[in-house]
Design a protein around this nucleic acid. Sequence first.
DNA 1: CGGATTGTTCTTCC
DNA 2: CGGAAGAACAATCC
Length: 287
Amino acid sequence: MPELPEVETVRRQLIEHVVGKTIRSVEVFHAKSANQDEDFEDALIGKTIAGIDRVGKLLIFSFQKQADLYMLAHLKMTGQFFYIHSQGASGGGHTYQQKEILTLPNLHTRIHYSFSDDSSLYFNDMRIFGYNKLVNAQALQKAKEPFGPEPNSPEFSISDCSKLLRARKGNIKALLLNQSIIAGLGNIYVDETLFKAKVLPTRSSDTLTTSEAKLLCEAMSAILKKAIEVGGTTFQHFKDTGGKHGNYRDYLQVFGRQGQQCTLCGTTIQKTRVAGRGTHFCPNCQR
DNA sequence: CGGATTGTTCTTCC
DNA sequence: CGGAAGAACAATCC
């Protein structure tokens, strides 16, 4: 369940490992994970990765001297990128302790990218909802269009965020999950944000006071920032490009804590269903 | 075996 | 059109 902090963690590691590298070969093990049409491999061979951007939970690869070629990568629920240094390399550089437990490619490997320096990038995706998809500049623009502003982006102030929330109807949880309103939150961080702001997930957003809405926006910014700092949250599937889990799970206040005591007031954390999703909250702290 | 899990999109209905 | 609710996608866990 990668959300903004997990995707950002992966993006930063990919930049470190694969930007500037030239693709020597591509193997697609599962047709649904890449473009449906044939020439995915051909289009990528010989290309050098120029940069990796992110919009919400969507990763965007660009290539040197290719103004009309981009690769969109969405992890959806179980997508993972794993990077493996060249086999023969020894000496300098840190070794990955996970190397022993990570055998690649494996059952869930959908795509293997091999670089000219003998290193490899693997796209694993157990449930095959995610994808690596080549698009042209026009399709890239179209793919970016539906996304709303991102928390913590300089041009999205707390007061703009607050106004945006209060202008809408419907329960606040559904609103925060909607990527076209604000981009990046998923089920985990929505529940954590609502707890921190002391707002019930079922509250209709037009009933939020200005101070509640501002508190909500500040809470989401702080939580996302902290989560990026500690490498994201691993609840079930998330792993970074070295196979390591994220450490924000140690900070979770409500997600997955149903039946346990609220860290603030001791009330039992409840789990219900809101906006079609498992929803965790403290019935005492959140109003 | 049934049900729950989740990010996103799509459909249906009001 | 906005919003709610459910389905679909896929595989795995309990």
